[in-house]
């Protein structure tokens, strides 16, 4: 058995110290603070108060379920739409496009270098009444499409547009893990194209699908800019409620409760999603 001094000198452990400290201070620390604030009395700005469940009760008895509901629903819709949109693109990039795949990768990745808000304001100019789309249609065809902006579909469009790369790239990685030889073998054994897709390709590319879906789901659940800029706050997302609680309402404890509930909701969904899935097996470690 190793002595403590030997154990502490392990290179792996020593190398993990900087990142461990960084995660502790930069990631775990703020989360613990948020958790602690959620038990402080409403409208207090220090942690030395008597803990209370008042904020949790207040959130549960008010209509915050509407914001949670919208955020959840839009996150699910965004994931579903992106799976349908990006699956064929990812398939093409891994199996068909050859050297063109690099160009597509660059084209999809490039917008990530530009601030999300700026890209969304670009969409505002497109969708605005008398904007690029409405104005062009009026000029060319004499028809008007003025009701595009400040609607729920506009919010969904924003979410799908902004989070597309976060679904596409994990899918590409997932699909590149499917060996062509397996599909050929399935074909030789008499499987139809549909059977090959359902029983070979889809299960084997599942790690990419799951990781992409998870990324997009979590990001959409906490999104704010799309509903504000493209939706004109036609709906209130839960991140909007959290921001308002921390700022205009000057109620850090309530903002903390909403944050804790959102994080818990995400964790519960992730838990159920991965409960029956063996990640190690999926990523090919065994």
């Amino acid at each position: 058995m190793k002595s403590f001094s030997d154990w502490i000198r392990q290179p792996g452990l020593l190398n993990a110290v900087p990142v461990g400290l960084f995660l502790l201070v930069g990631f775990a620390g703020p989360l613990v603070l948020v958790l602690l604030y959620s038990f402080m009395p409403p409208k207090t700005f220090t942690l030395n108060q008597v803990p209370t469940l008042e904020n949790y009760l207040s959130v549960v008895t008010q209509s915050y379920y509407i914001s949670f509901g919208w955020s959840l629903m839009l996150a699910v819709i965004t994931v579903a739409l992106l799976l349908v949109i990006t699956y064929p693109i990812a398939y093409g990039m891994t199996k068909l496009f050859n050297r063109w795949a690099t160009l597509i990768t660059i084209l999809v990745a490039l917008p990530l270098l530009i601030s999300e808000n700026i890209r969304l304001f670009g969409w505002v100019l497109l969708l605005l009444k008398n904007g690029v789309i409405d104005g062009s249609l009026q000029y060319l065809l004499g028809v008007s499409l003025s009701g595009l902006l400040y609607t729920v579909p506009a919010v969904v469009l924003g979410l799908v547009y902004v989070y597309l790369p976060f679904m596409l790239f994990p899918l590409v990685i997932g699909m590149s893990m499917v060996p062509d030889s397996l599909k050929e073998a399935a074909s030789d054994l008499g499987a139809s194209r549909l059977q090959i897709f359902w029983e070979v390709e889809l299960p084997l590319s599942m790690p990419g699908i799951l990781i992409g879906s998870l990324l997009v789901f979590i990001l959409s659940l906490g999104s704010l800019a799309e509903s504000k800029i493209l939706g004109g706050q036609v709906i209130v997302m839960i991140a909007d409620d959290i921001e308002s609680a921390f700022t205009f309402a000057q109620n850090w404890p309530k903002g903390s409760v909403l944050s804790v509930l959102l994080i818990t909701l995400s964790l519960v969904i992730i838990f159920f999603l991965f409960r029956n899935i063996d990640l190690d097996r999926l990523v090919g470690r065994r």
């Binding site: 409403p42 409208k43 008010q62 209509s63 509407i66 706050q233 209130v236 409620d241």
Partner: peptide
């Protein structure tokens, strides 16, 4: 303000879109 803010944010959330 605090009490009114609760009514205000509820009215915004429950808005008939």
């Amino acid at each position: 303000y605090a009490e009114m803010y609760e009514h205000y944010s509820a009215a915004k959330r429950e808005r008939e879109a």
